[in-house]
Design a protein around this nucleic acid. Structure first.
Lengths: 145, 145
DNA sequence: GGGGGTAGTTCGTTGCGCGAATTATAGGGG
DNA sequence: CCCCTATAATTCGCGCAACGAACTACCCCC
């Protein structure tokens, strides 16, 4: 609980520096990988669809994402990063990583790896959606098997 | 990041079962130890004082906490759990612990201890406020030194 | 070519968090 | 003793966040 509280604080503070709320930051990070549909985003972020509409509205108003029609389904919408959104997402992601990596300053490199490995297994076992990951990280993780 | 996301989801779901929002749940957990002043709470929860006023207002309206005058300082207020708040806080705390403990189901007991130890050190080193802890846990932790 | 399910939006409500301005009291120096 | 600054807390107005219910438009399949 308390370590999660710590991570949240870091995430929020990092977002404030780039003028994005934690929720909008999370949306940007998910979209770094590729555009997503609204329902898909709702499932990943665990939000009701009406909540998603609002979040995308506000983030779109900030010029970070845009709605594009889905060529295969007239009902559906694809939410994608704008050029500016791409830049902000990358900077926010990097800054957040930098701050997160400072947290275990009291651990030895071996202990950090150990901690990362344990948390990684817990995350995988609980099927946590990919809400924060480098675009190419999934490929590397898959290779390592 | 993702493990923190997981913990948040568990916390929110656990709170929903007892009709408390995550923020109100956090307030209850802090107050389990003892009553606190508003400024003190603001520092622990990292909230602006005006945010605290609102949070305590809503939680008080739900009958879970109450404001008491500070006998030593006429300006100050002590926020304390009501009888019902005490009960809800305990149940919410226990339920949350139960759910959190289910997360590392894929780890061996030794690995869980290892994980807990590493996270504990990170939390201590970063001076995370005590936002979630059994009333007697601090004493036990202090003894073990 | 209707009918059931799906994708998104709208609307109204509640909660949350902040900053600026305000009130009231505490506490210290002249 | 009195002023003056610092502190404790509240009020107000704002925007963000999340939800459920009701609605529209569309897909697909029988």
């Amino acid at each position: 609980m308390r370590s999660s509280f710590l991570v949240n604080a870091v995430y929020a503070e990092s977002g404030r520096e780039y003028g994005v709320t934690p929720q909008q930051g999370q949306l940007l990070c998910v979209l770094m990988a590729r555009p997503h549909g609204m329902s898909e985003l709702g499932a990943m972020l665990r939000l009701a669809k009406s909540s998603l509409t609002g979040l995308v509205d506000r983030t779109e108003r900030n010029g970070l994402v845009q709605r594009e029609p889905d060529p295969l389904d007239t009902r559906a919408v694809r939410v994608a990063l704008t050029a500016r959104g791409e830049r902000v997402a990358g900077e926010f992601y990097d800054e957040t990583c930098r701050r997160i990596e400072e947290l275990p300053a009291c651990l030895s490199p071996a202990e950090r790896d150990l901690l990362a490995g344990l948390l990684g297994r817990v995350v995988l076992d609980n099927e946590v959606p990919v809400v924060f990951q480098e675009p190419d990280e999934g490929a590397r993780a898959a290779q390592s098997h």
